[in-house]
Structure formats: structure tokens, C-alpha cells
Amino acid sequence: MTLFFQILGMCLFLLVFLVLYRVVFGPGIFNRAAAVSALGNKTLIILLVIGFLYHRVEMFVDISIVYALLNFIGTLAVAKYLEMEQRKL
């Protein structure tokens, strides 16, 4: 079972690098904001997989709830700021 979680973690980690291409090279700020939101989702799952690997799930569940919340509020704040400023970056 440990081997299964390790392979799962490695696959998700490689997916993070693929999304980083869109964060760096996305033309304009909107593509980068969408890619950062996707990155936050993958980070959430990687946190829980690490919790399973170290047999201390209770600790990592609290951290991942807070991270899901902060990702949501951050994306809303960026969208609201860009809508208010009405300019294309």
C-alpha cells in the first residue's frame, strides 16, 4: 500500500511541473491566474497523500482545509481586482 501511495505522489508531482509551464509562459495574466488555481488543487491532494505516507492523517487534514480556503479566497481577490481595474495586462 505504501508503494501505491508513493507512485501516486510521484505522478501528481510530475503533473505539477506540466502546469507550471502555463504559469510561466501563459500570455497575459488571466491564463496565469487559472493555472495557479489548478496548481492549488494538485497541492491539496499531494498534502493528503503525504499524510497517508507518514501515517499521520489527522494533522494533514487540518492543514489542507485551510489551504483549500486560502486558494479560493485568493482566486476571488485576483478576479475582483482585475475586473475593477478594467485593463488588460
Binding site: 494533522m59 487540518d62 480556503l69 486560502l70
Partner: peptide, 19 residues
């Protein structure tokens, strides 16, 4: 018992007011 405490809880409360 678990990760948390005073400062972290205060930041989460401020985050919901920011929401």
C-alpha cells in the same frame, strides 16, 4: 493537539472577513 493556535486562528477569522 494539532497544528493551530492563536495566530493561525486569527488569520482564518480575518480571511473570512476579507471574503
Amino acid at each position: 493537539h494539532s497544528p493551530g493556535g492563536g495566530f493561525q486562528g486569527g488569520v482564518i477569522l480575518a480571511a473570512c472577513m476579507a471574503l
